[in-house]
Design a protein around this nucleic acid. Structure first.
Lengths: 302, 302
DNA sequence: TCATGATTTTGTCCTGGACAATATTGGAGT
DNA sequence: ACTCCAATATTGTCCAGGACAAAATCATGA
């Protein structure tokens, strides 16, 4: 009987490292015959690193829309090949340039250089164009490069941190407590991607709104409390592609129901772009630009 | 048969909102007779808001060191009373002042005022004293106020965001790619509290180290990749009190084993303060001040 | 008073079955 | 050829209840 190597991971460690739930890991094992971990002395699953690596890869491809039954039948090499087929989005030529330069800096492990590029571009074209025309396509480019396996997750972290710095700096400089409308921005628990709300906050602050960011992962209960405490006009949530789609609508509906009617609910991010309808009384903002229109609408209604 | 109200939450929603795992929720039900959720038409658990509220309260008290069997027997009122007994830490008089002023600003919903206070104090006493003497006690004060129920979680979020903004600004200004040692800072998945690593980054950057922050929640695998890619001398992790203690040592051991021997591993935060020993070759930094000593040691050894 | 061993508490893991939400497929009608 | 809808397949989450080890607490003796 093989002893599991010391580097093998427990099921909860694999859940942490891959984002696949324990239930899913067990179910795949019986259903598809992968992964089949070793067992430790207590009969508990012990996943060797190769299997964890393959699980990561599969998760990436699933976030890009593929289905597990298809993926399990492919060889490792075929999976690698698939990552190269993840479609590339369209963007303006200058944005493409920016994106490719940034990706290059990331690959060369040059975070300083990247920050400088971002800073320069911000000065060149101003906050609004920077956020809309440069940052949005760059986010997509970085996300896609990661999905294709061209970037490590740590390189994506470095990018995210750098953009956060820049945006927080902008927002802090624009922040004005007397601004209107008063907008609360955050994400629900399980959603870790916070760049979307920062970008939105920068745009809205520029147009004179007062933005309060609660960071990521705020329980609904606390969003409600905060909305009342800060006398908020608009609650803006963001959902990434990785957020389980089936949970978006119920979450929005719950928030809508428990919030006073004269407060608006906005839902943005790639996750909400995949929805074709929103609960009555909530606004879908799949693209950042539409947030500006929504802001004008709000002001027109007062 | 009672229909569960529409506001009742599913077991996974409760897991999200309270941080108690599904297994724990089911086990408590059979073991202690609380919570006992209603069932929906498919026989699945549906937790009414009162029970969720009580679960939140219990989780808070457990993070402060209490045990569930004790808590379930108490009445709601008694639980509320318990939150007031959470011990208050000691600090210098001036830090106490700062902390109480800050708490006041938070309670009064005045984030701008709070930011100004922080900024002023930073100018008054400089980065090092600010981080060591003001921020550390304030973090404790805010955390304890939250555990006592005097602050809502959203107020804690507002505080965290403000401090983050300040620290990032400091770090950006001090950052120097030629600095040494090269330090990688992050937390493991499941650990969301990132203030600790930012504070450490500020202190180390001030002393001429080069700090790279990967933000929170980086899988071990990616930490290793990043450490090699950035030619890192020291990997610094942070564990809060909420991080399951039993997972700290194995995680440190794994990291230590898979990292080349000449790179150091530091473990900080309240979670590592509770440990009494660390795996061979890793350094415990339960208090920020000790990081400075550890830095001197590292330099002495070269 | 302190250490050490016994006992209780507590969280996590296991199996294997059920079910509903989601995605895909195969016509039928335009 | 194309849209719409129903039938079917896929997939994630939930359930029960038993097992076990790590952590915390208690009891005992030096």
């Amino acid at each position: 009987m093989n002893q599991p190597a010391r580097s093998a991971l427990s099921i909860s460690a694999v859940e942490r490292e891959t984002g696949l739930s324990k239930d899913v890991l067990r179910k795949w094992e019986t259903r598809y015959g992968f992964p089949v971990p070793m067992r430790d002395t207590q009969g508990e699953r012990a996943y060797p690193p190769e299997q964890v690596e393959r699980l990561r890869l599969m998760k990436r491809l699933m976030d890009a829309g593929m289905r597990p039954s298809r993926l399990v039948t492919e060889s490792d090499a075929a999976l690698q090949a698939l990552t190269r087929q993840v479609p590339a989005g369209a963007a303006t030529a200058s944005a493409e340039m920016m994106a490719s330069v940034t990706l290059d800096m990331l690959r060369k492990q040059d975070p300083e250089g990247m920050r400088k590029i971002l800073q320069l571009e911000l000065l060149r074209c101003g906050v609004e164009r920077f956020v809309l025309d440069a940052l949005a396509p760059m986010n997509r480019a970085v996300g896609e490069a990661w999905a294709r396996g061209e970037l490590n997750i740590h390189e994506e972290h470095v990018y995210t941190e750098a953009v956060q710095w820049l945006l927080r700096d902008i927002i802090a400089k624009l922040s004005d407590a007397r601004g209107s409308p008063r907008v609360l921005l955050t994400t629900l628990p399980e959603e870790q991607h916070g760049l979307g709300i920062l970008m939105l906050a920068a745009l809205l602050a520029l147009r004179g709104a007062y933005c309060i960011s609660l960071g990521t992962q705020t329980p609904v209960q606390d969003i409600l409390q905060a909305a009342l405490a800060h006398n908020i006009d608009i609650v803006a949530l963001s959902f990434s592609n990785a957020y389980p789609q089936r949970r978006i609508l119920p979450a929005l509906a719950e928030l809508r129901e428990r919030l006073p009617e004269n407060r608006e609910v906005w839902s943005g991010g790639a996750g909400s772009a995949r929805l074709n309808s929103a609960p009555a009384g909530t606004h879908l903002i799949p693209e950042l630009e539409q947030a500006l229109k929504a802001l004008m609408n709000w002001r027109g209604a007062r």
